[in-house]
């Protein structure tokens, strides 16, 4: 039973950053932006989360700084890809490298350390104990006592699905991706819709970064997003952007993450760390086969 709850909790916390970043990515996906900068946004979010939490000694400030840091990256993306019409792929690659470089640089400049920064002064995001529910035998360990961001993520998933499919903004968002010229000619600026989608992506990725550095662990290490932004991009592409599908895929990735940790008893850790990436390849395989069958 303990292993099972451990596995499920591992799955949930492994899925959260991917889900958050992918939800951010789905806004830009619908808006017709080829956004590969989630990795960079997440990384800068993770760094500024630690910075805010450490300097203000409070985790809400950490989250706020994370969102601001990630938004800064999103604004650069907006400036180059939306305003100056630079190639989105190029902007994304440069932005990801900029995030790696600048966080490493700031880590050295502000905290005077190389590699990783961890101090007792960093306040982590607390876990939420829900009274009554935590008394339920088995389920209580899963439903209660999770990190606050995890509950927030569930709300945000619902919100994202509602926004995309039920609101006027969502309609415009999808129109921007579906037929930008048509949207422009009906009097709505595509650029403005795309700008908003990138801002939303920045906020979501900032939260994902905050969860990485203040929830999952309480430290910042160089390049700690470790390809999660790419996995979340894969998740968005795999389900064509549907938020519910993304939630499901993220849970599967989270499961492989926890499963990898469990396997560590039998295999060298390097192999267990590969599991999520191999799982992405397998998921992509099934997606491609399905797509081909549909075509045939």
């Amino acid at each position: 039973m303990n292993i099972l709850t451990g596995l499920i909790n591992g799955m949930i916390s492994g899925a959260t950053p991917i889900l958050l970043a992918a939800l951010g990515g789905t806004f830009t996906y619908y808006a017709g932006i080829f956004n590969i900068a989630m990795e960079g946004m997440m990384l800068s979010g993770a760094f500024f989360a630690v910075l805010g939490s450490y300097y203000f000694n409070s985790w809400p400030m950490g989250i706020l700084c994370a969102i601001l840091g990630s938004l800064f990256m999103a604004l650069i993306f907006i400036l180059f890809a939306v305003k100056l019409k630079t190639d989105e792929f190029v902007t994304g690659i440069a932005l990801n490298l900029f995030a790696v470089g600048s966080t490493t640089y700031l880590l050295r400049q502000i905290f005077d350390v190389k590699g990783a920064f961890s101090k007792p002064g960093i306040v982590p995001i607390p876990r939420l104990n829900i009274p009554l529910i935590n008394k339920i035998p088995f389920l209580g360990d899963i439903l209660s006592g999770q990190n606050m961001i995890i509950y927030l993520t569930i709300l945000l998933t619902i919100l994202a699905a509602y926004m995309i499919f039920k609101t006027r903004f969502g309609l415009r968002l999808r129109a921007a991706g579906y037929n930008a010229a048509c949207l422009d000619s009906s009097g709505v600026s595509t650029d403005r819709v795309r700008t908003w989608s990138l801002i939303l992506c920045g906020v979501f990725c900032g939260l994902a970064g905050a969860f990485l550095s203040l929830g999952y662990v309480t430290l910042f290490s160089e390049n700690m997003s470790a390809g999660r932004g790419w996995i979340s991009l894969a998740a968005v592409i795999l389900v064509n952007g549907n938020p519910w599908g993304i939630a499901l895929i993220s849970l599967i990735f989270g499961f492989t993450d926890g499963f990898g940790l469990l396997l560590q008893q039998y295999l060298p850790s390097q192999f267990t760390s590969m599991v999520p990436y191999v799982a992405t390849l397998i998921a992509l395989y099934f997606y491609s086969v399905k797509a081909r069958n549909k075509k045939a």
């Binding site: 180059f80 630079t86 440069a94 900029f98 470089g101 600048s102 640089y105 050295r108």
Partner: peptide, 15 residues
């Protein structure tokens, strides 16, 4: 590490 930042700036500005 400043060079990493500078490189990314160069890429963005040139492109």
């Amino acid at each position: 590490e400043f060079i990493q930042v500078l490189q990314a700036v160069i890429v963005l500005v040139v492109v």
